[in-house]
Design a binder for these strands. Structure first.
Length: 257
DNA sequence: GAAATTTGACCAAT
DNA sequence: ATTGGTCAAATTTC
């Protein structure tokens, strides 16, 4: 086990212990202060998640050279789409407001589905040269399930706020301090499934995969070393940015592990 | 009238 | 020939 994972496990165990103690205090209406326990629980998870975030980037980089499942080569299209930057989210409702502004540019009947697929691109595509796009399609009737596939990164936020660091426009990963917990919860949100994971999980016994027929198309390739763009968060007021690249070196250790 | 959406045509990949 | 993705003119909405 790597040192980072050990520290993360220790932090999680510490958080679990504090949670149990907090539970005991609450159950017995003890007069013991609960705030320190709450802070310890929250700090434990935050710290552990930050470690996982950095270790995940490391593992993602290492996978780039040895993909687990290689379905097809990345599709090279005429508009410069050459990266496997796909990410998708299955939801009971179409995600109308995911924090970004989108402009619908197409709608298409898909062979494998009775529902049409809608195509959106960033509303600031021209103004800010943002290449982010998404596709939305209902993939199930009852209960309804809408699949949103995000393609490419948003760079419009970086341009909009005129942050001085060119790394933003180059796709470096950034989060805001005041939404750090949100970003971390996004990181572990089970619904937001990386394409490569589902490509592995959904291999049916007969070799068919209805889900993949619906959205995991020929141009949906493995997410190799750029998975972390999922850290992108909806646009908010400018300021309080930091880069995830810096997280692994961020000396945040409330437990002095 | 501007902005956003719809929709048929076009294109590249297979 | 078929399919998915994109374009752009037409249409709708505000």
């Amino acid at each position: 086990m790597s040192n980072g994972v050990e520290k993360a496990v220790e932090a999680l165990l510490r958080g679990q212990e504090s949670a149990y103690r907090l539970k005991t205090v609450l159950e017995h209406s003890s007069s013991a202060p609960t705030e320190p326990l709450c802070e310890t629980v929250l700090d434990s998870f935050s710290f552990a998640l930050s470690l996982f975030a950095s270790s995940n980037r490391e593992s993602s980089r290492s996978k780039a050279t040895t993909p687990v499942v290689a379905r097809k080569s990345p599709k090279k299209t005429g508009n410069g789409e050459d990266g496997p930057e796909h990410y998708r989210d299955d939801s009971p409702n179409p995600i109308h407001d995911d924090g970004f502004s989108w402009r619908k540019y197409g709608q298409k009947k898909i062979k494998t589905s009775s529902h049409q697929r809608c195509y959106y691109r960033c509303a600031y595509a021209k103004d800010r040269n943002c290449e982010a796009m998404k596709r939305v399609q209902q993939i199930q009737d009852s209960p309804p399930v809408y699949r949103t596939t995000y393609v490419r990164k948003h760079i419009c936020e970086a341009n909009a706020f005129l942050l001085p660091n060119d790394e933003i426009a180059n796709g470096s990963n950034m989060i805001r301090f005041d939404t750090f917990d949100q970003a971390m919860s996004e990181f572990f949100r089970p619904q937001l499934t990386p394409v490569e994971q589902e490509a592995i999980v959904n291999q049916g016994e007969d070799g068919t995969d209805q889900t993949m027929d619906l959205e995991c198309d020929s141009n949906e390739f493995l997410l190799d070393d750029e998975q972390s763009w999922r850290y992108q968060i909806p646009p908010c007021s400018p300021g309080n940015f930091m880069f995830l690249d810096d997280l692994s070196e961020f000396d945040y250790n409330p437990f002095h592990l």
